[in-house]
Computed example of a mutant assay.
Amino acid sequence: MALKATIYKAELNIANMDVHQYADFQLTMALHPSETIERLMVRILAYARYADEALEFTKDLFETDEPALWEKDLTGQLVKWIEVGSPDEDKVKKASARCKQVAVITYGSAVDEWYKRNSKLKTLKNVEMWKLSTATTEAIQALCERTMQLQLNVMDGEWTLIGNHAQAVIEWEQLQ
């Protein structure tokens, strides 16, 4: 019998003073049995970076042709494609041809090697790449609970994610 996904819920309040975005989001995510808490929390940060009511978590670990998050317009056409981790170069290239905006949120010790190996990604004009520091991914795991209340404050480029029992400074590095 296959293991089932575990459901996590997060109330995410964003106060981004840099772009004057103030919003509350109710997020429901499934943690796949093969997924780590680290990746789950990175998906929340990816959502926060591109936050929009139309942005949705997908079945990316169940469906390999889907990203971690996507946004579709009212006609069902893909507008945003957001990958988490170190995706296959061909998958990102296909997404780049189908969507106006593609983003990759990377983390982990092998990111620099992955980025060098996938040099064709640098030629894609509508693709953003962000790398999270190891300190960030370690700190955000302490915020994880089955039901979370998270407050994200952004001011002067500094991101702070606050949970019930801890907080984490989010360190982003833009690769592209």
Rank of each mutant, 00 (worst) to 15 (best):
A23L: 07
L78A: 07
E89S: 14
D156G: 00
H20L: 06
D60N: 13
K94S: 10
A23W: 07
L143Q: 05
L74I: 07
A110D: 12
R43N: 13
K131D: 07
S119R: 04
K100Y: 03
T136Y: 00
V79D: 00
E173F: 00
T64A: 11
A110L: 14
V42F: 02
E171V: 07
H20E: 13
T28G: 07
L3K: 00
S96F: 08
H20D: 14
E53I: 09
L78Q: 03
N118E: 08
D18P: 10
S109Y: 12
N153Q: 11
A95S: 11
D52T: 11
E89Q: 15
L45Q: 01
T137V: 15
Q149L: 03
L124Y: 09
D90W: 13
T136N: 01
W114P: 00
V169C: 04
R39A: 02
A23R: 10
A139S: 13
E138Y: 02
K93H: 03
D18I: 03
L74H: 12
D112A: 12
L3E: 10
E11H: 13
V111D: 04
T147Y: 12
P87A: 14
K4L: 13
L78V: 06
Y47W: 10
T106K: 11
K93G: 02
W70L: 14
I82H: 05
I170E: 02
F57K: 01
T58M: 04
I82A: 09
S86P: 01
M29Q: 09
T75C: 02
L12W: 12
A15E: 15
P67V: 08
T160I: 15
D65Q: 05
Q174Y: 04
V102A: 05
L55E: 08
C144N: 08
L161V: 01
